[in-house]
Design a protein around this nucleic acid. Structure first.
Lengths: 220, 220
DNA sequence: TACCTACTTGAGGCTATCCTCAACTTCTCA
DNA sequence: TGAGAAGTTGAGGATAGCCTCAAGTAGGTA
């Protein structure tokens, strides 16, 4: 299906993705596309040729993060301590959020994103579910939380990163430590609401639908 | 200093503030000013006459929230239980965040805001500091956190409210319960970073400076 | 080498929002 | 009551970012 690009086209594509990666990291997912093209040394028309929608460019830039997250989850499961594994995983995700404004927005469910590979994503979720289950079986993670509650860590952390990135770039570790203490307290108080269902979590993470809605829409 | 407005001007001002209150609550602080004017039944020129900058309108709309927050803090201090007081206060703030997208943005440090009364604000902070101190003296709140750490609750909560307002409007209570358990755990783990200083917190809460910067700038 | 196709280019149209200002209307007070 | 100050109006200029397309350029293959 995917025809190879011509040599110059491939080069320009790579330049665009690299430029977008830098600018998304520095300034978030809303940077003007014209500025990305300029930094890549390529015209705005070329950008649109290669990436018809912003979501396509975002998808290309962050494809490697899906893989990185998955690798992180595998590392976590390989660790001897179940709780340590969970902490390792959450710390890793938070560190990526702290290092990259664009990833931070994406991880906390803002920004349009054309998923490169849904299967990869699904496997990632399965791994995370095992990380959580294992930490509960070991008795370290409180039994009344679910995988879906982990989004509270991601979401909660997102705003802290934005607000303090320049003022106190390491502060997020303190925030995370407090969150983690809430997840393993020996005296958990009863939780007042049920957690999100996986389906609800999926919807909450993608205000704009995660894949382009047009694909299925056009009847021609 | 403040001359009384003419009768019609005062009526239009009130209409504008009411319209802005509704739209800010529904759609956040970014709603087009033209739309606010339209809902108020007034022309865009009138809006600009009364409120030269968006921050002025925001200041007028949310002046009562500063007072409400202060009242909440006083209630909290009047409660017999120190921990219950802290919870009451944080729940109250979070409930206001959940009920109003604009307040949510403001409380989590986004959005320009021309403070109506700095003294009022300062007194509010003093009250909050007492709420935190009292809860620590009673041994219920972990001793290694500060007032400045409470912004983690506000910030963390902000994104949860945005993401789940329509999907699960009461879910934030679960998030808050987990956060609170982290704040009173009997086995607190050491925190890896110092908390923000009051000055840092002030800066982190106002990416755009909270009062109009022009006031002092113009040399004429 | 020569052709054809894939690719690039950037001026310019489109939209949304901000903000101004000169002409007009309404209140208020003597 | 009427003069003048206070207030209102909305068309339109300014800006910013999105996106297109007709004309031009360059890689690849015969």
């Amino acid at each position: 299906m995917a025809k190879p690009l011509r040599k110059d086209a491939q080069r320009n594509r790579d330049l665009l993705v690299a430029a977008a990666r830098e600018l998304f990291a520095e300034r978030g997912l809303d940077v003007p596309l014209e500025e990305i093209a300029r930094r890549a040394g390529v015209s705005i028309g070329t950008l649109y040729n290669r990436f018809p929608a912003r979501a396509d460019l975002i998808g290309a830039v962050f494809a490697d993060r899906v893989a990185a997250t998955r690798a992180l989850a595998e590392q976590a499961l390989a660790m001897p301590g179940a709780w340590d594994g969970l902490v390792h995983f959450l710390e890793g995700v938070c560190a990526m959020q702290a290092a990259d404004l664009g990833y931070n927005a994406l991880a906390s469910g803002r920004g349009p994103y054309a998923a490169a590979d849904d299967a990869d994503l699904a496997e990632g979720y399965a791994l995370m579910r095992r990380i959580v289950a294992r930490a509960q079986e070991s008795g370290e993670l409180r039994p009344d939380v679910t995988l879906e509650d982990m989004v509270f860590v991601i979401w909660g952390h997102a705003r802290t990163v934005e607000a303090t990135a320049t003022i106190a770039p390491r502060l997020w570790r303190r925030h995370l430590a407090l969150l983690l203490d809430g997840l393993r307290t020996p005296e958990p108080s009863p939780l007042p609401e049920p957690s999100l269902t996986p389906e609800q979590a999926r919807r909450a993470m993608s205000p704009q639908s995660p894949c382009r809605p047009d694909d299925a829409a056009s009847p021609v």
